[in-house]
Amino acid sequence: MSPLQSLPAIPPRADRQLHEQHKLGKRLRHQVGRAIADFGMIEDGDKVMVCLSGGKDSYTLLDVLLQLQKKAPVDFSITAVNLDQKQPGFPEHVLPDYLRGLGVDFHIIEQDTYSVVTRVIPEGKTMCSLCSRLRRGALYTYAEQHGFTKIALGHHRDDLVATFFLNLFFHAKLSGMPPKLLSDDGKHVVIRPLAYVREADIEAYAQAKGFPIIPCNLCGSQDNLQRKQVKRMLQAWEQESPGRIETIARALGDIRPSQLSDPKLFDFLALGTRDGSALPDAHAWLGGETHDRAT
């Protein structure tokens, strides 16, 4: 046998693509399952409302959750919910046709938030903030009316990292987008099962699955968004130092309050004081007040 005959056969390109797609799907299921377990996102008997926008992230979220549901250690239901914001030219048939094909329970909320946003926000200004509030209000109201116990959103690892830097650069605070949170009114538990998933993997998965993507023409086309600035910065960092975004994402799960500067999180006043002696208050320090010292 010649040396060439002893080499393993190279599989056809189509077979390699299927193999890579299988590996990607397995990785996504593992990462989503781990996030659900790490943060206690889904419990037995949960009614999970998956918010479906028509973008790659929410399609991937729904697809992976439906796969995990079949083998999950707990019993839970899934309902896909889309908010039709009445944007001009929105293809209303795409999501219902896709969801009927899956056989998944779904509902389309119809609410004209588009007119509200375009009326209130001056031309050329960023619409995302108001649009997001109106969309969240409509989804929360529907979830409360129909007894959903969890609201699942499609934010991924890169979204969590970008939100941290948005708050750091533009709002002067260290906060981000937690994988699981309780709404301000205490009525809703919001979960982000894609918290460990890279956006690049979602893009590849959505392309491989052929999801019928619906672009957001209301705010997605705005070039001056702060989030886009941060995304470009993170992409440049990743190109320069591959793995940096993953390192930052892990750091968001390893917070050490005593190494920061927030007195609400760490009692700096009590740190290292001698014999419990009282310290002058801020007014005394700032005002330069004197006090009698023992001689």
Rank of each mutant, 00 (worst) to 15 (best):
M1H: 12
P3Q: 09
L4S: 15
A9N: 09
P11F: 11
R16L: 13
R16W: 01
H22G: 08
H22Q: 13
K23N: 09
G25R: 06
R27Y: 00
L28E: 02
H30I: 02
V32C: 10
G33Y: 01
R34Q: 15
C51M: 09
G54S: 00
G55C: 10
G55S: 10
L66A: 13
Q67V: 02
D75I: 03
F76D: 08
V81K: 08
N82V: 07
G89R: 00
G89P: 00
P91N: 10
L95D: 07
L99S: 07
G101Y: 04
V104R: 01
F106T: 02
I108M: 02
I109P: 01
E110D: 08
S115M: 02
V116R: 12
V116I: 15
R119V: 00
I121Q: 08
P122C: 11
K125P: 00
T126S: 14
M127H: 12
M127Y: 07
C128T: 04
S129M: 01
S132L: 02
R133H: 14
R135D: 09
G137A: 13
Y140E: 11
T141H: 13
G147L: 05
F148W: 12
A152N: 05
L153C: 10
H156T: 09
L160M: 14
F165P: 05
L166E: 12
F169V: 15
F169S: 10
F170L: 09
S175V: 10
G176Q: 08
M177D: 11
M177W: 12
M177N: 12
P178S: 11
K180M: 03
D184T: 11
D185G: 11
G186C: 04
H188I: 10
I191A: 02
Y196W: 02
R198Q: 08
A200L: 12
A200D: 15
I202D: 09
E203C: 09
E203A: 14
A206T: 10
Q207M: 08
A208L: 05
A208T: 05
F211S: 05
F211G: 08
P212N: 02
L218M: 15
L218C: 06
L218A: 08
G220C: 04
G220T: 04
N224C: 06
N224H: 15
N224E: 13
L225K: 14
L225W: 05
R227M: 07
K228P: 03
K228V: 09
V230R: 01
K231C: 10
M233A: 14
L234D: 04
Q235G: 11
A236D: 12
E240F: 06
S241D: 11
P242M: 03
R244W: 06
R244P: 01
I245T: 15
I245K: 07
T247S: 10
T247F: 07
I248D: 04
A249Y: 10
A249Q: 06
R250C: 09
R250E: 15
R256M: 08
R256F: 10
Q259A: 14
S261W: 08
D262H: 09
P263M: 04
L265N: 13
D267G: 01
L269R: 11
L269I: 06
A270E: 10
L271C: 04
T273M: 01
T273G: 01
G276V: 02
A278S: 13
P280E: 00
D281I: 01
D281H: 04
H283P: 00
W285L: 13
L286W: 08
G287I: 01
T290N: 09
D292T: 15
D292G: 12
R293Q: 13
R293Y: 11
